[in-house]
Design a protein around this nucleic acid. Structure first.
Length: 646
RNA sequence: GCCAGUAUAGCUCAGUUGGCCAGAGCAGCUGAUUUGUAAUCAGCUGGUCGGGGGUUCGAAUCCCUCUACUGGCUCCA
């Protein structure tokens, strides 16, 4: 007999070898039908894997993340099985579950797969799912595993197995398909009722650009058809808040094939929005002791040779600009830091001056790979809200804290609540990838980790994600369809100060090396605006939105009054426009709604004679009539309220 | 850069297996209408069918190539 402890702390006795499925059956038939996997002593197991010792068991269903994962991982096997039947000879790489669904990397040989083949594969999968194929776990020796996949001729699995230890290798068999797999899986394929293959893409084997590209097929499955339909509607809805769609609709930015790929053109309304953001951050930075500097868009190649950027990025950049002088070359700046280092260097500094914080909205140019470009989130010319802090080593922590204050203030003001924080450190296995001494790296990494701990930040540490010149802390936000984008960044740099031989005179009258902190709270104006658009679905906060109000005269007769209203509002720092078209009010309201203008001010005979406005909020709320002063007060209070939140 | 797609008017899209001067709605322009909380009516303008090359009696439609865009991979703010 063994003791099974359930989440409610009740303990049940079972014969050794009991499965989670049996335990579920004991509780209720419905639960047995819905159980997908089980957490056994904290580890996710198959629902039909025998338990031989005392254990705490939590049954997992579709409502648990781990339950979904088991289902999607099993769906990847199901897809592989269907593909093996439809395309004999296909070889399989890896097929994990992901945040929303699963994928499988497959080598189809000479066969080309496109989304036109999805229907056929989905059909086959459904067919196989209905067979209620059971997933069977088998422990296997390394030798037998190698034999099996050698016979099958799957070099990808062989490579994976060769890296595993004997004794930890398991296979899972379902229907006609056997896969190298650690599990866990759902009891049988019967629970998979709705299947949708979503996209096909090339993916390098093991993520290595130099290795073969396999065909990756993404898909998602659900236990109910209705849930699939709801998911697809959700995806459609998300597409409507795509910044590229809204950017066009709201006339914020555009691109031109003539100007070039990845080079955004900011339209008047977009520029207005961006300027508001810049003004806001400039004020915050001024208050925090930053000084503005301005540097050119190009720099001599030697500058980047000194900084190391040329060696690192030269080959993948825009090519150097030549001049009439033989051998003279300039580079479009890919970073602002070298220029700022030279600003620091223009005169000797005393320790009493530090920290020196140099800020610039600096436009940089990077020749991103063509396939990387993406709306405003990934472009070739962009403006960083950059600043470099030159400080003494013992000031790092307080400076780091100051920067996090600014970043958090911004994210709070714009209501970015779901921010992921990542600390990127060296990959200890490849020290040759980084420049700078081990000692300095350790110092910097320790400072970042300490700050995060002291502030209680929920930060995730990633090894091998650091920049080549130093460790960093990044702030990431998801876009409309769940892709993560890095916005704010803080990077410690012990390297550039060395390369540029930056020094300050200490209290001991000796030269010392300052530490440099790179930081950009927005990251770049382009990416930040893109993510902001998606975050608020184009309904910008009142203080930021290009047009705060639109005056809608009922007819031409009230045009003069409309103009009077607008000019009075302008005196209260309220910006907007008049819809003076010869259209009905209903039409003007509709168009203003589409433009997502926060306040519509309807003026007709009644309003004119009483010096009033009829106020309608975006979305339909009728605030009734009020006079111009009252309305101005309302707007300015709302703006002030959001500013205070900052 | 790689894999797979897409490219028709300012925007969103039709254009059947290659066959009459390439269509619609919205936007724009002109006129009528003077309007009260999500689309007033009529007329008109607007397209080298992304660029180039080819196959064909004939190409928006088939093939090649370049460019841009989309979804991934790799990379990155």
């Amino acid at each position: 007999m063994i003791h099974i402890t359930l989440p409610d702390n009740s303990v049940k006795n079972y014969e050794a070898g009991v499965t989670a499925f049996t335990i579920a059956s004991d509780i209720s038939e419905g639960l047995a039908r819905n159980v997908l996997a089980a957490k056994v002593n904290g580890e996710v197991w198959d629902a039909n894997r025998p338990i031989f010792n005392d254990a705490s068991v939590q049954l997992l269903t579709w409502n648990d993340e781990d339950g979904k994962a088991a289902m999607w991982h099993s769906s990847a096997h199901l897809m592989a099985e269907a593909i093996e039947l439809l395309y004999p000879g296909a070889k399989f790489g890896i097929g994990p579950d992901i945040e929303n669904g699963f994928y499988y990397d497959i080598d189809f040989g000479s066969h080309d797969i496109s989304d036109k083949d999805f229907g056929k594969i989905e059909q086959k999968m459904l067919e196989l799912a209905r067979e209620k194929q059971e997933f069977t776990r088998k422990d296997i020796s390394k030798k037998d595993a190698l034999d099996y996949f050698t016979k099958k001729g799957d070099e990808y699995k062989l490579e994976l197995i060769s890296e595993l230890e004997d004794g930890e290798i398991t296979l899972y068999e379902s229907g006609h398909f056997t896969d190298l797999c650690r599990g866990p899986h759902i009891p049988n394929t019967g629970v998979i009722k709705a299947i949708k293959l979503l996209k096909v893409a090339g993916a390098y084997w093991r993520g290595d650009e130099k290795r073969k590209q396999l065909t990756r097929i993404y898909g998602i499955t659900f236990p109910k058809k209705k849930e699939l339909d709801e998911y697809l509607v959700l995806l459609e809805e998300a597409k409507k808040r795509d910044h590229r769609v809204l950017g066009k609709e709201l006339e914020l930015f555009t691109f031109s094939q003539q100007v070039g790929s990845g080079l955004p053109l900011w339209l008047p309304k977009g520029a207005q929005l961006r300027e508001k953001l810049e003004q806001y951050l400039k004020q915050v930075q001024k208050d925090a002791g930053y000084e503005s500097v301005i540097t050119p868009h190009i720099g001599n190649v030697n500058l980047y040779k000194t900084s190391g950027h040329f060696q690192k990025y030269g080959a993948e950049s825009f090519r150097p600009i030549t001049t009439p002088v033989e051998g003279e070359e300039f580079f479009l700046k890919p970073m602002n830091c070298p220029h700022h280092c030279e600003i620091f260097n223009y005169k000797p500094h005393s320790y009493k001056e530090l920290p020196i914080r140099l800020a610039e909205f600096g436009t940089v140019y990077r020749y991103e790979q063509s396939g990387e470009l993406h709306g405003l989130t990934r472009v070739r010319g962009f403006t960083q809200d950059d600043a470099h802090i030159f400080c003494m080593p013992d000031q790092i922590k307080s400076e780091f804290n100051g920067v996090i204050d600014i970043i958090q203030q911004i994210f709070t003001a714009l209501e970015f609540n779901d921010v992921l924080i990542q600390i990127s450190l060296r990959d200890p296995k490849t020290p040759e990838k980084y420049i700078g001494t081990v000692e300095n790296w350790e110092k910097a990494e320790r400072a970042i980790i300490e700050v995060a701990e002291e502030r209680g930040l929920n930060a995730k540490i990633e090894y091998g994600e650091a920049a080549f010149y130093g460790p960093k802390m990044d702030f990431m936000v998801k876009d409309a369809i769940g892709r993560k984008w890095q916005l704010g960044t803080i990077q410690v740099d012990y390297n550039l100060p060395d390369r540029f031989d930056l020094t300050y005179i200490g209290a001991d009258n000796e030269k010392h090396r300052p530490v440099m902190i790179h930081r950009a709270p927005f990251g770049s104006m382009e990416r930040f605006v893109a993510v902001l658009i998606e975050h608020c679905a184009g309904n910008f906060p009142l203080w930021l939105t290009p047009d705060q109000v639109i005056v809608l005269p009922i007819s031409e007769k009230y045009q003069d009054y409309a103009e009077k209203v607008l000019s009075l509002l302008k005196k209260h720092e309220i910006r907007g426009l008049i819809d003076d078209r010869s259209e009905k009010t209903g039409r003007k309201i509709r168009d203003a709604e589409m433009k997502k203008i926060p306040y519509m001010l309807i003026v007709g005979e009644k309003e004119e004679s009483d010096e009033m406005l009829s106020v309608r909020k975006h979305g339909g709320e009728d605030l009734g009539a009020m006079n111009i002063g009252e309305f101005a007060q309302l707007i300015n209070d709302e703006v002030k309220a959001s500013m205070q939140k900052k």
